[in-house]
Nucleic acid binder design. Structure first.
Lengths: 251, 251
DNA sequence: CGGGGGTTTGAGTCCGTTCAAAATACGTGG
DNA sequence: CCACGTATTTTGAACGGACTCAAACCCCCG
């Protein structure tokens, strides 16, 4: 059972300086962003904050959902599995993102599992805490609604692009997104990206096999669009990548 | 501009017998299902109900979103297009389903277009009407939240299946879903389905070309799993279809 | 009877998958 | 620090599937 840090305000990380969730909320743009100080205080007093190492499981498919998770630092992934061992990384979540809200709202067991992709901190909020806050602050429900509809739009966009783009186009598109999140830009417009995922998970995100992804990567290198070395990618320029994912028809 | 029927309670259809949305709400399970009679009355008084013929557009991508649409009768489709003429049918909606709520919640123009797939009735509710109701009945926000999270779960499930299943598996799966909605069961376990879509849209829903879909259909007929004649499908038994979509690995 | 859209079929090519093996990176313990 | 075992990634070859382009077909409607 996660316990650890709790509400101690004199803890190590700089994020612990301020009590509760105030620090998170200020730097990020979570669903709690417009909450008043009193509610934030309440939230901070009732959260359980826990550290996760890469690969560690936050919750698993089939687990009962007793509340809401919220990413504080790091990167986590939502994964779905089936009986035959297929694994797909459905979504990546970053500080401020909520996790497990579908199951919480519907009072149902988790349909996806969640694991840390890098060193991360994830907070946990009991269902009762959220319910109390929702009844006291109706505006919070609107924020949740805004958040879920944004995610829904993203999901539909992903479905559309999966239907319309080629494997290569999908990967190039994924690469540009990852570059924005995990890349550092250099003066000459080139970027260096440290991917938070292995080949298998990258392949699952574009709906193909890791062998196929390897060949796609080879071709990208042959075209001079990127150089791959393990999880490190060097991209001379994002422009041709974006152009590629725009044009890339179905085959 | 849609106008027409409005609040007249002595109109033609049987659904018009009861005033307002009460009839819709009772038979279906819309987001308004648990609303009190007074609110339903308010809703019914402020809705604009309109009839659509097959192919007619309810709203289009880029249109400003001034409120919420709700399917009353029939079947409608949500479609997304891109610059190069690609068209994907993202979702089908049935009586009780809400449309355009993402754009309404986010106060943004529509990202998808919506058109009637068969003869349909769709109601329109002004943003202000929904806002008033939301402020008077906070429980309505919870219902919306439940609805959007359900749709989000469906979307993720679709992404997962697109990533994991073959074209044939995806189509068989789609076929079983359409059979449940649009099929009539016979005594011997066979079903007759009248598809509400043409081949092109069917193909777009599984992310392939209509030529490829034609060949998939040929193979299904060769396997004796279904007989196709235009938009009419006869399915001897759903059992082998379900088994097929379970097993069908990626290729 | 002649469009015109939608659907099916055909041939060729490319792409993606499978199975298998080699190469590389990684973590552990000696 | 190196050796080792393990997991991941890359590459190869063969097969099947899917895409493109194109033509024929069908059906509904004017």
């Amino acid at each position: 059972m996660p316990r650890s840090v709790g509400r101690r305000s004199s803890a190590t990380g700089s994020i612990e300086r301020r009590s509760g969730c105030a620090a998170c909320v200020l730097v990020n743009r979570s669903v709690f962003k417009d909450l008043d100080p009193e509610s934030l205080e309440y939230l901070g007093a009732h959260r359980k904050r826990r550290e996760y190492r890469p690969g560690q499981v936050v919750f698993a498919m089939g687990d009962s959902c007793g509340g809401l998770h919220c990413v504080s630092t790091g990167t986590v992934g939502l994964r779905r599995l089936d009986e035959r061992g297929n694994s797909v990384l459905l979504r990546m979540a970053y500080p401020g993102d909520a996790l497990g809200y579908c199951s919480m709202v519907q009072r149902r067991d988790h349909l996806t599992s969640c694991e840390a992709l890098g060193p991360s901190h994830v907070c946990y909020l009991e269902q009762s805490t959220i319910d109390t806050l929702l009844s006291r602050r109706p505006a919070l429900a609107s924020q949740f609604l805004r958040y879920t509809t944004q995610e829904l739009d993203k999901a539909y966009q992903a479905i559309f692009q999966n239907a319309v783009m080629s494997n290569r186009g999908r990967f190039v598109h994924l690469l540009t997104i990852l570059a924005e999140r995990h890349g550092t830009a250099h003066g000459d417009g080139s970027h260096t990206v440290t991917l938070p995922l292995g080949r298998r998970d990258l392949a699952s995100m574009i709906g193909t096999r890791h062998e196929t992804l390897s060949r796609i990567i080879s071709r990208l290198e042959a075209d001079g669009m990127a150089r791959f070395s393990g999880r490190t990618v060097h991209i001379p320029s994002l422009t041709p990548l974006r152009a590629d994912s725009e044009v890339a028809g179905h085959a």
